[in-house]
Design a protein around this nucleic acid. Structure first.
Length: 206
DNA sequence: TATATAAACATGTTACATCA
DNA sequence: GTGATGTAACATGTTTATAT
């Protein structure tokens, strides 16, 4: 096992003031088990002036950004090398990478949300268009069926004495079954948007 | 194989620096 | 001077790799 034995690697070296000035406030393993939350840096009543937070220089940030762009994860050797190159504590580099990953994830989530929102809106609009089309096609179907009935009535009247041409009359069940199937098929296609106007007209023989 | 341990990480919080 | 914002540092819980 190559991992360090120290529970807080580098902390004593990086932040000696914490160990020196807050040893009474912060004990990683106080009696009872769970570590207590450490707080209060730079309080007004602090007995000794504590180091204030210093932002990294532009050069340091740029260098870290380049490295972050290459690889978001930070192996131990790389951390040490970066820290040496930048004149920072390894822990500072580790913290910077942790915070940078958090910012990256946050931004990534935001972008993903925006992208999904646009996709969702597009789908909703498409759905509206398709529903309108279905209504229109149903209306056309209804009109066509009325027309077919009208034409069928005329044909029947004009050929009344001779029943040999009336398929409906001779084979009512067969025709009825066919029509039911045809209508079901049409409705299925309409409801599933697998038909366009031309196909519909062809199917209806218009 | 089960368990303990420690490093690395994710996530959330706090405090400080900076700017409008 | 003050509130908003960005970010370094930190707390804490979880995951993972390794030793025993």
């Amino acid at each position: 096992m190559s991992r360090k034995k120290n529970m807080f690697p580098g902390l004593e070296d990086d932040l000696p003031f914490l160990f020196h000035h807050t040893s009474g406030l912060y004990n990683p393993f106080p009696e009872g088990g769970k570590p207590k939350r450490r707080r209060r840096r730079g309080r007004a009543d602090a007995p000794v002036a504590e180091p204030k937070k210093r932002n990294l220089t532009v050069e340091q940030v740029n260098f870290l950004e380049i490295n972050f762009g290459n690889e978001h994860k930070l192996e131990s050797a790389r951390k040490d090398r970066l820290a040496a190159d930048l004149g920072l504590a390894p822990r500072t580099v580790a913290v910077w990478f942790q915070n940078r990953r958090a910012r990256w994830r946050s931004k990534h989530l935001e972008e993903e949300y925006s992208r999904l929102k646009v996709t969702h809106e597009t789908v909703v609009i498409d759905k509206c268009h398709l529903e309108a089309e279905v209504l229109n096609l149903r209306d056309q179907l209804s009109k066509a069926e009325s027309e077919i009935k009208k034409l069928a009535g005329k044909t029947e009247r004009s050929s009344r004495p001779s029943s040999s041409l009336s398929v409906d009359a001779d084979y009512p069940d067969l025709f009825g079954e066919f029509r039911a199937e045809e209508n079901q098929s049409l409705l299925y296609m309409l409801e599933n948007n697998h038909i366009n106007g031309l196909e519909w007209a062809n199917l209806c023989g218009l």
